[in-house]
Design a protein around this nucleic acid. Structure first.
Length: 477
RNA sequence: GCCCGCUUGGUGUAGAGGUUAUCAUGCAGGAUUGUCAUUCCUGCGACCCGGGUUCAAUUCCCGGAGUGGGCGCCA
């Protein structure tokens, strides 16, 4: 078995039953491969030539390479077959690597770097694509999001969409990397639960055999039980389900939450964890050649749509902090309509974003706006004399990416909080029980993966960043 | 849940109370070409559904369905 190392991102590709080399390898290692017989496979982006020769643009997950076919080499029958092949058909070629003849260089233009092609000796049609395609993979026409999602399998073949999901994988990878380096380990909490986590939000009901149950809206309470169990530093990347009938660019009914919880820490401590993690993600993406190539692919598409290029700006540490009280004062100074104790709505968030267009924390919200599990320090009062909490948000411009805080570890206060918010402690017995034998002071947060990806990739709709989004109207595919 | 828009070939659009319904992309056929956003020629393909107004509705009105955006709420 031969192992070949890709230079660009140091990935080891092992030859498989269907190909000896990837198309990316043909381009990157072409100089060393000249004269070598290879088998490659992929989707046919285009074919040119109706005479005695034919050119195929073949694409796989690593790149695109031209296949050159000549009747003399492959036979007239195979040549005719390929010439009549539909776009996006799945083909496999065996042939010899050679240097491409350079395109006719126009006067005064620099000669392009050498490129490589495969001179085909044989072809196998693995699958002929039906025509017409429900959406063009390489067409320059704009395609509506709904059409794209109905035909997501084809939409994903488009270079910039493919790049988005490769970036998504990288963001998760670097996020995990940052947390693991600080002593966190990955865990999982149940998604089928008997009780609402926080009250307030709508849940998807389901039957668990003969017992009514729900899809979980958040790992919150279970993360906290991990603290009671002495796990100290956990994180989870998993789905959260919310049955809210919203219809916006930033909401989904199923989304992936990047959650952490840590013992012996307060809200300030976990804000530090969060900003260091985001910093690591941004910094890594900016210096990873594969990521840079994905960003470049997205920018090429954006240019074709006359959209501004995106730029990965590594944020400086620490992120700005604007306390709730200061935020209210700022909004009022800018003429926004708000009173202490109000949530900060979209219009007022826009006012804050004027001065803070990127990442910033909003710490110390009023206790009355936060859920029962959020901790407060007696005597920390807001400008109108009401109790503040140790809850915070992380925003990027107008959009909320994270909410988190120090949790209430004192069982008597916790029970008072539940009662004060019209929740029945009996219903939360599974949770309250975890506090009877002592829980370390602890804190954590939940980050919306789709939302942070929107900020990284410039996507204007959260659906862009999910393979098969679940929204108010869409449950298939 | 509230408010506002939109629905024309496979895809994305232009447009008007009476048109041969526009353009791009695509598809089919042909010519040319070591091509490379190929080029050129010919052809194919559409007005969301129901009701109303009208001599005439794809166009105006009402209802429905689908869909896009904003808001609330949140991640």
């Amino acid at each position: 078995m031969s192992y070949t190392r890709r230079r660009r991102c140091m990935t080891t590709w092992v030859a498989t039953a269907y190909r000896t080399h990837t198309l990316g390898q043909i381009q990157e290692e072409g100089a060393d491969l000249i004269g070598q017989v290879v088998t490659v496979a992929g989707f046919m982006e285009a074919n040119r030539g109706k005479g005695a020769i034919c050119f195929v643009d073949l694409r796989d997950g690593t790149g695109t390479t031209q296949i050159f076919l000549k009747g003399d080499n492959v036979g007239d029958e195979a040549l005719d077959l390929v010439q009549r092949m539909t776009r996006e058909s799945t083909l496999q070629f065996t042939g010899t690597v050679s240097q491409k003849r350079p395109p006719k260089a126009k006067e005064g233009e620099p000669t392009p770097p050498p490129a490589y092609e495969v001179v085909a000796a044989s072809v196998v049609v693995i699958a002929r694509a039906e025509a017409p395609l429900p959406l063009g993979v390489t067409d320059t026409v704009h395609v509506a999001l709904d059409t794209r999602l109905d035909n997501r399998f084809l939409d994903l073949r488009r270079a910039h969409v493919n790049a988005m999901f490769r970036l998504r994988g990288k963001v998760l990878q670097y996020g995990r990397e940052a947390l693991i380096s600080e002593g966190f380990f990955e865990t999982h909490t149940p998604k089928i639960v008997a009780t609402a986590t926080e009250g307030g939000t709508d849940l998807f009901p389901m039957m668990y055999f003969e017992t009514p149950a729900f899809l979980n809206q958040s790992p919150q309470l279970f993360k906290q039980l991990c603290m009671s169990g002495g796990l100290e530093r956990v994180f989870e990347v998993g789905p959260a389900f919310r049955a809210e009938k919203h219809d916006t660019y930033r909401h989904l009914n199923e989304f992936i939450s990047f959650d952490i919880e840590t013992s012996w820490a307060n809200d300030d401590d976990v804000m530090g964890v969060l900003e260091r993690m985001i910093h690591h993600i941004w910094k890594s993406v900016a210096s990873d050649t594969a990521c840079v190539a994905h960003i470049d692919t997205i920018n090429k598409y954006r240019a074709s749509q006359e959209e501004e290029a995106i730029e990965v700006i590594v944020p400086e540490l620490p992120f700005p902090r604007l306390s709730y009280c200061d935020a209210i004062a700022t909004i009022k100074a800018k003429g926004g309509s708000i009173e202490w104790g109000d949530d900060i709505d979209a219009e007022n968030s826009d006012l804050l974003a004027e001065d803070l267009p990127q990442f910033y924390f909003l710490p110390r919200w009023p206790m009355e706006l936060k859920p029962f599990y959020i901790h407060h320090v007696e005597g920390e009062m807001g400008s109108t004399g009401k109790q503040l909490s140790r809850g915070f948000d992380l925003n990027f411009g107008r959009d909320e990416l994270t909410s988190g805080g120090q949790r209430e570890h004192r069982i008597d206060v916790l029970i008072e909080n539940l009662k004060g918010m019209d929740l029945d402690p009996e219903e939360f017995e599974f949770y309250v029980a975890g506090f009877r034998h002592g829980v370390p002071p602890h804190a954590g947060w939940g980050l919306g993966v789709e939302r942070i990806l929107m900020k990284l990739t410039g996507a204007k709709n959260v659906r862009e960043t999910v393979l098969f989004p679940r929204d108010r109207r869409r449950v298939s595919p």
